[in-house]
Amino acid sequence: MSSRHGITVTVNGAQVTREVDARTLLVHFLREDLSLTGTHIGCDTTSCGACTVHLDGVAVKSCTVFAVQADGANVDTVEGLADGATLHPLQEGFWEKHGLQCGYCTPGMLMAAKELLARNPDPTEEEIRFGISGNLCRCTGYNKIVEAIQYAAQKLREAGEEAHA
């Protein structure tokens, strides 16, 4: 049988402690144990990126990591992006630029884009497309997704300049 493990994970800044089966995947832990259903399950085959979350600041497909592996780690999901009622610049970008159609891939796109912009605050269109190439949009709305990320990049750069002014 599967071994059981007590784990403590800091999810969107709040510490949670639960007992999990060794075979529980991180995405199931988030959705079912913590009711954080913003993280989607798209493909079940490590292909689509809808389940992307940050594990200690690194964007990963949470369908391919066991929950027990997150013991002691920080996990950030799409639910942690907004600051109260204020949308994160990426969320605002997807809103303003119509960066989604059905919205299923959006949480993963947002979390992948967040890492991309942290690594490269001023990416070219090509770098954005390369950066989100692990995330599939079945509506094929990539042009608008790229525009949304460009919008957020500019907004974040401006905020950075203001902070340093």
Binding site: A59, V60, K61, I132, G134
Partner: peptide, 9 residues
Amino acid sequence: IADPLVRNR
């Protein structure tokens, strides 16, 4: 190799 998210792991 694979895609950027897979390469992260």
